[in-house]
């Protein structure tokens, strides 16, 4: 099919910005754009931090790199905890968001309205506020049939993070479904498919490709947001870094340690962000 010709000289910036805006609207969040330059800058900050700390240390202190190395196993354990929280929150949020997204296009006005409200409430509420809500409103244990089940803090934090993920996935699902041309619904209807069959067999399979890039983007954002759990006292990387710093009791270490934490997150999220961009480009050509 022939595409309408756009003269490349005219308004290239406007067109590019419009496309970026559309992508961001579809993904429900600001697209994460990590460049190699960001990694270089982070590494530079780390080196600078180490240099400053080295200059401030006393003669009998161990070297900065040795100190960081000493704490690395503990920090790594904390990072693994961050990842665990991100996996579980993503899984819960995606499943809940998936159904919420479909509820948003329901033909029943009450369901549609309720889903819309839920989505927008959790999407626009600050993540930290939701986290606090979950931390302080959920009980620390529940008793079901006489069995007392404790709810550890990290579970509550995970739930707190799963809520905004759910809302964002809901928007991703709704956006993807509504981006499928209505003619597909018409064609399915004229072949006597019912609405449920049309959604599951015809519309949704076509959505998966469109949903994948914004979904991965959301995951990268979530991973970086897991450090919020440190504020509510979960033993993740950020909390452990603070503990390490207070144990060392050397103020000069601050910049070095926090840049080190940033580097860990960058190394983990960078490939995801690059992969997202590549998928986006690939699917953009196909459609």
């Amino acid at each position: 099919m022939r595409q309408p010709q756009v003269l490349p000289v005219l308004l290239p910036a406007a067109e590019r910005l419009a496309k970026a805006a559309m992508r961001e609207r579809a993904s429900g969040a600001r697209a994460l754009r990590l460049e190699p330059a960001h990694g270089v800058a982070l590494f530079a900050a780390f080196v600078l931090g180490c240099g400053v700390a080295q200059a401030q240390s006393r003669s009998y202190d161990p070297s900065i790199l040795a100190t960081i190395w000493k704490w690395t196993p503990l920090l790594a354990r904390g990072f693994a905890f961050n990842l665990a929280i991100s996996f579980v929150a993503m899984a819960i949020g995606s499943i809940a968001g998936f159904f919420l997204g479909f509820a948003q296009i329901s033909l029943l006005p009450a369901v549609k309205r309720g889903a819309w409200l839920t989505t927008h409430f959790f999407r626009n509420a600050p993540w930290l506020v939701l986290l606090f809500y979950c931390m302080f409103l959920l009980p620390f244990q529940v008793t079901v049939f006489g069995v007392t089940i404790p709810i550890p803090d990290w579970t509550k934090a995970t739930l707190g993070l799963a809520l905004p993920v759910m809302a964002n996935v809901s928007e991703i699902v709704r956006g993807a479904i509504q981006s499928i041309p209505t003619t597909q619904w018409e064609a399915a209807a004229s072949l006597a498919f019912n609405r449920r069959q049309t959604q599951w067999m015809i519309i949704f399979p076509q959505c998966i490709k469109r949903m994948l890039p914004p979904w991965m983007n959301l995951y990268a954002i979530l991973t970086m947001s897991t450090v919020l759990a440190s504020i509510v006292g979960v033993n993740e990387m950020m909390t452990l870094t603070q503990r390490a710093l207070s144990a060392e009791n050397r103020p000069g270490l601050l910049l070095a340690f926090y840049s080190y934490v940033l580097l860990w997150f960058f190394v983990y999220c960078y490939p995801i962000a690059r992969w997202t961009v590549r998928l986006e480009a690939r699917y953009a050509v196909r459609q």
Binding site: T183, Q184, E186, A187, A188, A189, S190, L191, A192, F193, N194, R195, I202, Q206
Partner: peptide, 22 residues
């Protein structure tokens, strides 16, 4: 919907833009 589906089993439509499932 059920009634419409029964009808559409008997009446099939072909569209200008083909509308195959991609």
């Amino acid at each position: 919907d059920k009634e419409k589906i029964a009808l559409r089993k008997e009446v099939s439509m072909v569209f200008q833009q083909y509308n195959l499932f991609p």
